[in-house]
Amino acid sequence: MEQESRKRSVSKAVTYRIVVVIMDFSVIYLLTGKIMIAVGFMIISNIYTTIAYFIHERIWNKIQWGLQRKA
């Protein structure tokens, strides 16, 4: 069974956040036509979603369901 390296995990997390930032900005800009509103939403959204993701991961770290031991 292959295990993902920390470097790969960090790279995936960073590239995912970049994609989300671009998507957030694009959608809000298309809806409002205002760059500053899109930038503001992008910043606020990424703060609260990052915090929510951290809390979500910490909760899942305490749940044993679905874990399998490596052979």
Results as ranks from 00 to 15, higher is better:
Lys34His: 12
Met1Ala: 13
Arg69Gln: 08
Phe41Gln: 03
Ile47Ala: 05
Trp60Cys: 06
Ile47Asn: 05
Trp60Gly: 05
Ile59Glu: 02
Ile63Glu: 04
Arg8Gly: 06
Ile37Cys: 01
Phe54Gln: 13
Ile47Arg: 01
Val10Arg: 09
Phe41Ala: 05
Ile44Tyr: 02
Ile18Lys: 11
Leu67Ala: 14
Ile47Lys: 00
Asn46Ala: 02
Tyr53Lys: 12
Ile28Pro: 00
Arg8Val: 06
Gly40Ile: 00
Ile51Val: 15
Gln64Ala: 14
Asn61Val: 05
Met36Tyr: 07
Ile44Leu: 15
Glu4Ser: 04
Ser11Glu: 15
Ser45Arg: 06
Met23Asp: 05
Val10Pro: 03
Ser9Leu: 12
Ser11Asn: 11
Val19Met: 07
Lys34Trp: 10
Gly33Lys: 04
Leu31Val: 01
His56Trp: 07
Asn46Trp: 02
Leu30Glu: 03
Tyr16Lys: 10
Asn61Ile: 03
Gly40Tyr: 00
Lys34Pro: 07
Trp60Glu: 15
Thr15Met: 09
Thr32Trp: 00
Glu2Leu: 06
Ile22Tyr: 04
Lys7Cys: 07
Gly66Cys: 01
Thr15Arg: 14
Gly66Lys: 10
Glu4His: 03
Met23Asn: 07
Ile18His: 07
Val20Gly: 05
Glu57Gly: 06
Phe25Gln: 00
Gly66Ser: 02
Val21Leu: 13
Arg6Val: 10
Ser11Met: 10
Ala13Cys: 07
Arg8Glu: 15
Gly66Ala: 02
Met42Ala: 14
Lys34Glu: 15
Lys12Glu: 12
Lys70Gly: 08
Ser26Asn: 00
Met23Ile: 15
Asp24Ile: 00
Gln68Ile: 07
Arg69Val: 07
Val21Asn: 08
Ile18Val: 12
Ala52Gln: 05
Gln3His: 09
Ser26Phe: 01
Lys7Phe: 08
Lys12Asn: 14
Val27Asn: 02
Ile35Met: 14
Val27Pro: 06
Gly66Ile: 01
Leu67Tyr: 13
Tyr29Ala: 00
Ser11Ala: 14
Ser5Asp: 01
Gln68Ala: 08
Gln68Met: 07
Tyr53Ala: 10
Gly33Met: 02
Val39Phe: 04
Tyr53Ser: 11
Ile55His: 08
Arg6His: 09
Lys34Val: 15
Trp60Arg: 11
Arg69Cys: 06
Thr50Ile: 09
Gln64Lys: 14
Asn46Lys: 02
Glu57Arg: 13
Arg17Glu: 12
Ile59Lys: 14
Ala71His: 11
Asn46Ser: 04
Leu67Val: 10
Lys70Ala: 10
Phe41Pro: 01
Trp65Glu: 15
Met42Tyr: 00
Ile47Met: 11
Val14Ile: 03
Met23Gly: 12
Gln68Lys: 15
Asn46Thr: 00
Ser45Phe: 06
Ile47Thr: 07
Val39Met: 06
Asp24Pro: 01
Thr15Val: 09
Ser26Trp: 02
